[in-house]
């Protein structure tokens, strides 16, 4: 099956152009970038029929180089010995998370590409969120379409943290009253141990209640009516939970 790769990034489009130009040539190329930036998906998308080997398996890489003219080596940084690899007359595409030995890599590869991280290609975030949201909706059998606030997406570990953020958002958005009860039950069962736990864990309910109320009704006066508590009590609780800015 051909891997799907989507991008709006000019940098990545240039990398694709470069690979497309060398598709028919017997040259060695390497693409280097942080983990989970889509390097492997991109290469499998561009070279769907190439044999793929894992750089953690030195012997297998050496054997594959003997038998194949076109080879993708992922985890290239994990190869223990790259000095003796023979890339002559082959189309080798290596994928690495970092430069393991700059001098040797410069020496054995004709084309060296640097895959930008998601921080360096923010234009791809929305595209990827939309793509993975569909997967999440399908996997979790969600009936409603996910509405994702891009500001809440974590891209510190590229697509790995991005996907995790979508799952978290999906879970938050689809939780029922009973689910929340269950979550609290499991959490409290695991963590309850002190002598003043009522006071300690009450904010788990109280804080989101007031925070949501302030966002929804904008006024403390109105919220105190809605919640049926004294205005001074509400103000005190807002102060206790540091919700003054809301």
């Amino acid at each position: 099956m051909t891997e799907q790769f989507i991008t709006k990034s000019t940098q990545v489009e240039k990398i694709i152009k470069g690979f497309n130009l060398t598709k028919s040539l017997l040259v060695s190329s390497i693409i280097i970038g942080e983990p989970h930036t889509g390097k492997r998906t991109l290469i499998k998308h561009l070279f769907p029929n190439a044999l793929t080997v894992d750089g953690s398996e030195q012997k297998r890489v050496e054997e594959s180089l003997e038998s194949s003219d076109e080879l993708i080596i992922f985890n290239f940084h994990k190869l223990t010995n790259i000095d003796n690899l023979n890339f002559d007359n082959k189309r080798v595409i290596a994928i690495a998370n970092y430069l393991s030995n700059e001098r040797i890599i410069d020496n054995i590869f004709a084309f060296i590409y640097k895959m930008p991280s998601l921080k360096e290609r923010v234009e791809d975030i929305e595209l990827l969120v939309n793509l993975f949201s569909k997967d999440v909706e399908r996997n979790l059998i969600l009936e409603d379409k996910l509405e994702i606030d891009l500001n809440r997406i974590n891209i510190s570990s590229n697509t790995q943290s991005l996907i995790k953020s979508i799952y978290q958002e999906a879970f938050i958005q689809s939780c029922s009253y009973a689910d929340i009860e269950d979550i609290l039950y499991h959490y409290l069962l695991k963590n309850m141990e002190g002598s003043s736990d009522y006071k300690k864990y009450l904010p788990l309910y109280e804080k989101p209640l007031i925070k949501a109320g302030l966002k929804k009704y904008h006024s403390q006066l109105r919220l105190s009516d809605i919640l049926g508590i004294n205005r001074n009590t509400l103000r005190k609780k807002i102060y206790e939970h540091s919700l003054d800015q809301f």
Binding site: Q11, K14, I15, K17, G18, L21, T22, S24, L25, L26, V27, D88, N89, F111, I112, Y113, K114
Partner: peptide
């Protein structure tokens, strides 16, 4: 000579320029 392949030099040049333009 076994490493020598009949090549369109313009394609090869374009690929290299494209790599250079990336950075």
């Amino acid at each position: 000579m076994d490493k020598y392949r009949t090549t369109d030099i313009n394609t090869l040049l374009e690929a290299n320029i494209s790599l250079f333009k990336l950075q």
